[in-house]
């Protein structure tokens, strides 16, 4: 018992008390409350009748076609964005890992998309994609790729990719910084040794650089997937889930169900599904990070 509640434990408890209280209040309690809510049929339009329905909200969910559409859209969006982020960030990280004049300025410039608020980013891309006066139409028209202005975001086939592009632009800086860390941690004697053994630039890249970057890559992939599957802001401002259901992702579905249809029970059930998926994904994330703390 002395070991359990020694001086160290008591002072640590004192120091940790505020953070634990805050996290209990703003994270643990809400997520448990959400689970509780998901067993009720709660319509704000009918505040006095909130019957307990067991798992009905969940079974309704899994038999709802629009839910599965939203899952499919979320998967498309996440796969496209995360692979694009990984490739672009790798190229940028390799570039910034070189020693050249202006490297510092370049890495400062790279922080610009990271700092921009998502809403402003959405506003900017909405204007770029604008069907009447946007830059995308303008530049393609001037370069003769198109002979008339296109309604980019109104095209069911292209919408999700255009939104993904806006997401990628904003997320590349963070991914790059994370990848640069693992690039910088490669000891230079590894390259020397490879060079002595007669490895070409490409061979050194494939056999030394890439394996050493694996942990960094894992981290970027998991982190960006977590960000992508929960992303909301761009969908809200660029398309509101449209046209049709072309960009009706899960987070948008939750928003519509909860705040437009005012069914909080099923909204809670859906957010719970999303939270569980994120947890499953982030298990590796937590393991990777937890080990290093």
């Amino acid at each position: 018992m002395r070991r359990l509640f020694g001086y160290e434990e008591r002072s640590a408890a004192l120091f940790l008390a505020p953070v634990m209280a805050v996290l209990m209040g703003v994270a643990v309690f809400p997520i448990l409350y959400s689970l509780y809510l998901s067993f009720f049929r709660i319509k704000l339009t009918r505040p006095n009748r909130t019957p307990f329905v067991w798992f009905d909200n969940y079974t309704d969910l899994f038999t709802n076609d629009l839910f599965w559409v939203s899952v499919a859209r979320t998967v498309t969006f996440s796969v496209v964005s995360v692979s694009a982020i990984a490739v672009i960030a790798l190229l940028v990280a390799l570039l910034l890992n070189q020693d050249f004049r202006g490297r510092r300025i370049l890495s400062t410039i790279l922080l610009v998309p990271w700092a921009i608020p998502y809403v402003a980013n959405a506003l900017m891309w909405k204007w770029i994609y604008d069907s009447g006066y946007g830059a995308l139409n303008g530049i393609l028209y001037q370069m003769d790729f198109i002979d008339k202005y296109m309604i980019w975001l109104g095209d069911q086939e292209k919408t999700i990719f255009l939104i993904a592009n806006a997401f990628v632009w904003k997320e590349v800086p963070l991914a790059t910084i994370l990848l640069l860390v693992s690039l910088k941690s490669i000891p230079s004697d590894l390259y020397q040794a490879a060079r002595v053994d007669g490895a070409s630039v490409w061979q050194r890249f494939v056999h030394v650089t890439l394996p050493a970057m694996k942990p960094g890559f894992m981290l970027v992939m998991i982190y960006e997937t977590m960000m992508a599957i929960r992303h909301f802001d761009l969908f809200f401002i660029l398309t509101e889930g449209g046209p049709g259901d072309a960009s009706h992702v899960l987070s948008w579905h939750i928003y519509v169900e909860t705040f437009r249809n005012l069914s909080f029970g099923s909204g809670a059930a859906m957010s719970y599904v999303l939270a569980l998926v994120t947890f499953a994904l982030s298990y590796t994330f937590i393991r990777t990070l937890g080990r290093k703390v």
Binding site: V19, M20, L23, V26, A27, V28, F29, P30, I31, Y33, S34, L37, M226, I229, R230, F232, S251, I254, Y255, T258, F264, G267, A268, S271, Y272, L274, A275, T278, F279, S282, F285, I286, L289, G290, V293
Partner: peptide, 18 residues
């Protein structure tokens, strides 16, 4: 440490309803 890490990965949209 694990407790704080777990709270970190809760998606904000899951917190909105409660």
């Amino acid at each position: 440490v694990y407790f704080i890490l777990i709270t970190r990965v809760i998606p904000d949209i899951a917190l909105v309803v409660p």
